[in-house]
Amino acid sequence: MTSSENSNVILEADKIHAWFGSHEAVKGVSLSAVMGTVTALIGPSGCGKSTFIRTLNRLHEEIPHTRVEGQVILEGKNIYERGVDPVGVRRKIGMVFQKPNPFPSMSIFENVAAGLRLAGISKRSLLAEVVEQSLKQAALFEEVKDKLKAPGTSLSGGQQQRLCIARALAVKPPVLLMDEPTSALDPISTAKIEELVMELKKDVTVVMVTHNMQQAARISDKTAFFLMGELIEWGDTSQVFTTPKVEKTEQYITGRFG
């Protein structure tokens, strides 16, 4: 990695280990993400990529009997340092989940405004502005502008997922984590989200778990291949997919296992 690239690193994981009880799901993964890029994490089910991504915003520790070791450096500061409030960390690192999960009995508007509102911002005009901007960013505004008061759960699956993206963007995080954001969606909604991710990377750095290798190849700049809790290979997407250095990667990519 060149030094100019290095200076643009916004998020860096350093020897991350993560446990569920006594089971070590992530075994010493080091990875970094450069500002304005999309990093895809691929690998077979159960390889620890989702667990890894959840250590990046300190969500892993919310599950009882779990443990994390290692460092995650966000904008030069270790988020696992003593005294760092996970709540503050999560404001800077947004997350989109596998299943669209709009908040129940909240309208579309309230869903997008939730992050700001529960942080104590109540100025109506400011909220309206941010909501509109976030929905536009998530390419959903045109579809919902006349029914902002409708329940968030009344939207279709693909729209709900874009609503969740808008909700995450509303607090303006520099980094956005996506945990298989399209695996519950149909191909058309998936295409929309992929397009959106490529658009979004101007403003946010995206780290995305995906089961779909074509998706990783289409939209990511960097690809990391996980297997059994370890990072097997990591590099530019074009390199990983065309000339993988490790045999296991090649076998996985060509569909020989996984």
Binding site: N57, R91, C164
Partner: peptide, 14 residues
């Protein structure tokens, strides 16, 4: 569902 709580936490809501 648990993922609703996680969605809230991931937004940086206490």
């Amino acid at each position: 569902p648990q993922h609703i709580r996680e969605a809230g936490l991931a937004l940086g809501i206490p």
